[in-house]
């Protein structure tokens, strides 16, 4: 009964989506705002990568809201997991990584760090930016955690340091916005001139905003993964019975 209702629901959803897709022009978007931005962004922002120009220049407040959503998600994850950690007394010892894993992690860590920072600071020139580079930075630190999990699986990553980096980066983003508000009355408006388009130090404050976004995203995601990696799976429930998987993915 429930399955039939679900199938009807999804069939209706597919029909609606198909109707919408049939009414869209194939490959001919209306793009009124997009066309304007494409024609004005080179002169107004001075960034080669127009996606970054929109992300940090035209829609900077949107990015700030997105960062706060990510912050809320990371905080809620920490809240849920830390409250559970108290009632779980016995920690199973995490097995140490092997020699190859440790050496590989040591070799990979500086490489990932360089790639992450390269992508962050070149965000206004080439594809990439704060989000992608930040995720790579988080991955670089998490590789170390995986190679040397340590006693509680956290690999010696200090949550305080992560929180400090994250707070400083977020405060830096907002401070750049407030500076712009103080200077010319618009929040988060790109400043400091445009420079020569295509050079590393161009597009005004966009590289600084990109750095702030990258550090914040990297610190948040590294903290999130460390929290998930801590306290390996123990038998939480005394009478936990592994039930047979009985999903009926079909009909």
């Amino acid at each position: 009964m429930r399955n039939i209702a679900s199938l009807l629901f999804t069939a209706g959803l597919a029909f609606l989506l198909l109707v919408i897709a049939a009414q869209l022009g194939f490959g001919e978007p209306p793009m009124r705002i997009g066309g304007d931005i494409l024609s004005q962004a080179p002169a107004e922002v001075g960034a080669t990568n127009i996606v970054t120009a929109v992300l940090l220049g035209y829609r900077g407040i949107d990015t700030l809201g997105e960062l706060s959503i990510l912050f809320a998600a990371a905080t809620a994850t920490g809240l849920v997991l830390v409250r559970g950690r108290k009632d779980c007394e016995h920690h199973a010892e995490e097995p140490p990584g092997g020699f190859i894993l440790r050496t590989g992690a040591d070799l990979l860590f500086p490489l990932l760090l360089v790639v992450g920072f390269y992508i962050i600071v070149h965000g206004h020139l080439t594809p990439g930016g704060g989000f992608q580079g930040g995720v790579i930075l988080a991955a670089a630190f998490f590789v170390l955690v995986l190679a040397r999990p340590g006693k509680d699986g956290s690999g010696g990553m200090s949550h305080t340091a992560i929180a400090v980096v994250e707070g400083l980066a977020g405060a830096g983003f907002i401070a750049l916005g407030l500076w712009s508000l103080w200077d010319n009355g618009d929040f988060l408006k790109p400043m400091l001139g445009h420079g020569v388009m295509g050079e590393l130090l161009s597009a005004g404050t966009l590289p600084l905003l990109s750095l702030a976004v990258g550090l914040k995203v990297g610190a948040e995601l590294a903290g999130l993964m460390t929290q998930l990696a801590e306290q390996p799976a123990t038998a939480q429930h005394p009478h936990q019975h592994p039930h047979p998987h009985s999903e009926d993915g079909g009909s």
């Binding site: 199973a92 799976a233 123990t234 038998a235 019975h241 592994p242 047979p244 998987h245």
Partner: peptide, 11 residues
């Protein structure tokens, strides 16, 4: 999938 293993599987 359906194994009955009580202990932690991550070890």
């Amino acid at each position: 999938a359906g194994a009955t293993r009580q202990s932690a599987a991550g070890d």
